[in-house]
């Protein structure tokens, strides 16, 4: 690999300490005998979500999401002029840059984007395109920059949600908000919103797979679909149904997050009052 002259480099060959674990157990059960998962959730439970819009002061729009330990931040710049004249078109362009932070996954990632990150960038772009009114900004592009700060499963779904909230925060006109959900399928179970261990454990074995789906709830259409692993047709169809339900459950949360951010932008005084009221009665969604 060519030496990266633009960064401070360490030794060329390094190995992660995870390969040297004393007691690396083999395939372990993802679901306990009583039907609960390793973290105590049921099969259809989504982990607690925290979302906030307007976190990057320099960007037109930004958002931050935490799904349990998965942390994703997104900033939207635009609409602004296309960088290259060849990209002039009568509809706007969405350009997405997706990157895992080097320390975000158990095995350290490189600084240069690898094929998985480039593929995810393309998928997120195609997930968001149906929802954005591209004809409203011809000859312009909207840049979406996503960094996954910690990956504990469902990173792609979290990124899609985060970027659609950031787009609304940037006041880019949209037809609908894009929600997303991940499902891990094993021979016996279908686990919603898997953690990193649940997503990667024995994923290459037969009848195991992961499905990520991006969904537009108001117009009831799927804007993105990614399936990995080895699954039968019926399982995939059932998985799509369950994913759709999961996406619809997340939708009210996104709605609430956007509502609050809009309120805080335009009525800061009232927001302080509301916040102090909430301090006395915390709400759960």
């Amino acid at each position: 690999m060519p030496v990266d002259k633009k960064r401070i480099t360490g030794p060329e060959v390094t190995q992660s300490p995870l390969y040297f674990l004393e007691d690396s157990s083999g395939i372990s059960q993802l679901v306990n005998k009583d039907g609960t998962r390793k973290d105590g959730r049921g099969e259809n439970d989504i982990r607690p979500i925290f979302m906030k819009a307007g976190v990057v002061s320099q960007a037109q729009g930004s958002a931050y999401i935490e799904i349990a330990n998965t942390k994703v931040i997104c900033a939207v710049y635009g609409p602004r002029q296309v960088l290259r004249r060849e990209d002039f078109s009568m509809t706007g362009i969405l350009k997405c840059e997706f990157k895992f932070a080097t320390f975000s996954c158990p095995f350290r990632r490189k600084f240069q984007p690898d094929v998985e990150e480039k593929e995810f960038a393309l998928i997120i772009e195609q997930a968001l395109s149906p929802a954005v009114c591209l004809h409203k900004f011809p000859k312009s592009q909207v840049d979406i920059n996503i960094r996954v700060l910690e990956n504990d499963g469902s990173a792609l779904a979290a990124s899609i949600i985060c970027s659609s909230v950031a787009l609304t925060d940037a006041a880019v006109e949209m037809y609908d908000i894009v929600t997303a959900c991940t499902l891990r399928i094993t021979p016996e179970h279908m686990l919603m919103d898997p953690s990193y261990t649940e997503e990667t454990n024995s994923i290459n074995c037969e009848s195991n797979g992961v499905v990520t789906m991006g969904f537009l709830p108001s117009i009831n259409q799927t804007s993105s679909l990614l399936q990995r692993g080895h699954l039968s047709c019926d399982k995939v169809l059932k998985a799509l149904q369950i994913c759709t339900e999961g996406c619809q459950r997340i939708y009210p949360l996104i709605h609430e997050c956007i509502r609050r951010s809009v309120k805080s932008k335009y009525r800061p005084a009232e927001q302080d009052k509301e916040k102090s009221e909430e301090d006395q009665n915390p709400s759960k969604g």
Binding site: P48, F50, V55, K71, R260, E278, P282, K284, G285
Partner: peptide, 15 residues
Amino acid sequence: MISCSWYPTKLLLLN
């Protein structure tokens, strides 16, 4: 049951 926390407990203490 999804719960959503409005208090940034983990990463970004948004000032």
